[in-house]
Design a protein around this nucleic acid. Structure first.
Length: 157
DNA sequence: GCCAACGTTGGC
DNA sequence: GCCAACGTTGGC
């Protein structure tokens, strides 16, 4: 049973173009330091799950690509890297605190912007649109996924 | 830069 | 376990 997810990335950090330019169009989803979001990656995701690649904290926030979960969960290496902004002194190698998955971009799309998402009645219940939502990873209902893929005219199903 | 909303921390 | 203070997210 394939599940669907929305994953936010700041394009200044990793944009959909950056991901496309990476080997196999695949990037490790580093830097998540929120337990709920971590748990989605660690416990909820399966290889092949659908991902909506979302740009946040930028001029035009929105969904900019279709991707897929491309690995099983493994420890986020940046938690052990003293020079990384994501370094976590409390994380031990024997007992990693932060887990991530690899994400592979399947298709770059147009930007389905936040205002457009908000103005689409069928998408009103999306978690990412809820007031005050700050979660960088949210599950996506199959019906919402289908609607968005249709709005994007994306090939990926 | 502002600020609402939320998560985390730490004293008690 | 409560809750105030603080830090972060993220749209605008």
């Amino acid at each position: 049973m394939t599940a669907y997810w929305l994953m936010k990335s700041e394009p200044d950090e990793v944009s959909v173009d950056d991901a496309l330019a990476a080997p196999k169009s695949t990037v490790p989803w580093t830097g998540v330091r929120n337990y709920q979001a971590r748990n989605f990656m660690r416990d909820g995701m399966r290889v092949g799950d659908g991902v909506l690649f979302y740009h946040s904290s930028c001029a035009e926030p929105g969904i900019v690509g279709i991707a897929r979960v491309a690995s099983t969960p493994y420890p986020d290496p940046t938690q052990f890297d003293r020079k990384s902004p994501y370094y976590d002194a409390a994380a031990k190698r024997e007992e990693p605190r932060w887990m991530l998955v690899d994400v592979q971009v399947v298709e770059k799309t147009r930007n389905l912007t936040l205002p457009e998402l908000r103005s689409t009645p069928e998408l009103a219940d999306m978690l990412v649109l809820k007031k005050g939502n700050r979660l960088s990873i949210t599950p996506v209902e199959p019906a919402h996924w289908k609607k968005i893929v249709r709005l994007l005219g994306a090939k990926a199903a």
